[in-house]
Design a protein around this nucleic acid. Structure first.
Length: 288
DNA sequence: CGCATTTCCTGGTAGC
DNA sequence: TGCTACCAGGAAATGC
């Protein structure tokens, strides 16, 4: 499942290849719909740069004659999306092919078996049709993002911290794997109301997010099943996961068994010993 | 507005 | 072997 480290890995590989390239044509092999809205507008435009916000890839498209960008290509890989150089043999689940001017490789394929991904063109910076992108929280690896800002964001909600992290509102780019990993590292119970995580724990949580996202990025991400880099490589971080996919195994901190539960319809693995739920007393949450 | 629930989609796998 | 049932889940849509 591509989250921040996986999408950033892909961005870094795409950037030197796609920057400045002219999109000569667009082929849509999936049924037209909101997930591919406006895609035909990409034809005739050059790619100014390859950027990332959260789990979204954002490619501003230069206007006719190289004028400043008017459109933006927005790509979300969903759960099973893969971007790679076009191959002669069309993949069974090929959804979009961009035809590029210039030297080989002259095509970019978007393959997406489960169809949770998006590949759309919007007017630059206008994300009305993409509410999550419109409301996206700060980049966790940005040093301007402080524990105080994170705490202020978390204070806006009483839903379970795990669910709130997945909403992309308090911080961008965190999905199911790294949410579980960071909560375990910071010793925060997944069901803790977001606003009830006290400042010290918020700081620990931000540190944990940065550690795990940074380490995974160095490993080119986590491959469970479908995720591949642009060049078909698997990410190497799976063996470093402490909790995700390890329900029933020993907690690497206390040795007790990790447990699995469902939080907001999402499978969640945690250590009941190391991640304690704060108690509610007189309407206030207290630690321990 | 906040929050909960439902929906989309296919490959893999458990069970018979 | 072949069938059915179910599960994985990011974000949008829908319903209070």
């Amino acid at each position: 499942m591509p989250e921040l480290p996986e999408v950033e890995t892909i961005r870094r590989q795409l950037a030197p290849w796609l920057t400045g390239r002219l999109i000569e044509g667009v082929e849509l092999l999936a049924p037209m719909g909101p997930k591919y809205a406006g895609l035909e507008r990409a034809a005739g435009h050059a790619i100014e740069s390859v950027n990332r916000r959260g789990k979204y890839l954002l490619l501003p498209l230069l206007g006719e004659g190289g004028s400043s960008p008017d459109y933006e290509l927005v790509v979300h890989l969903g759960m099973t999306g893969v971007l790679r150089p076009a191959e002669a043999e069309r993949h069974k689940h090929l959804r979009v092919r961009l035809e590029l001017a210039g030297p080989d490789p002259t095509g970019l394929d978007f393959i997406d078996p489960r169809r949770f991904g998006r590949f759309t063109v919007v007017a630059k910076g206008e994300y009305e049709s993409l509410p999550t992108l419109k409301e996206l929280g700060p980049e966790p690896l940005d040093h301007a993002f402080t524990p105080e800002l994170f705490a202020a964001n978390l204070a806006r909600s009483r839903v379970a911290i795990k669910s709130y992290l997945l909403s992309q509102r308090p911080v961008a780019g965190v999905g199911n794997i790294y949410a579980d990993e960071a909560l375990w590292r910071a010793g925060v119970h997944p069901l803790t109301p977001a606003a009830a995580v006290e400042l010290g724990r918020v700081a620990a949580l931000l540190g944990a997010l940065r550690d795990v996202l940074g380490a995974s990025l160095e490993a080119q991400g986590t491959t469970l099943n479908d995720y591949r880099t642009v060049y078909g490589e698997s990410g190497d971080y799976m063996g470093s996961l402490d909790v995700y996919g390890r329900a029933g195994a020993e907690c690497r901190r206390c040795g007790g068994p990790l447990e699995r539960m469902v939080v907001g319809q999402r499978g969640t693995t945690y250590c009941p010993e190391c991640q304690r739920l704060p108690r509610l007393r007189d309407g206030e949450w207290e630690d321990e």
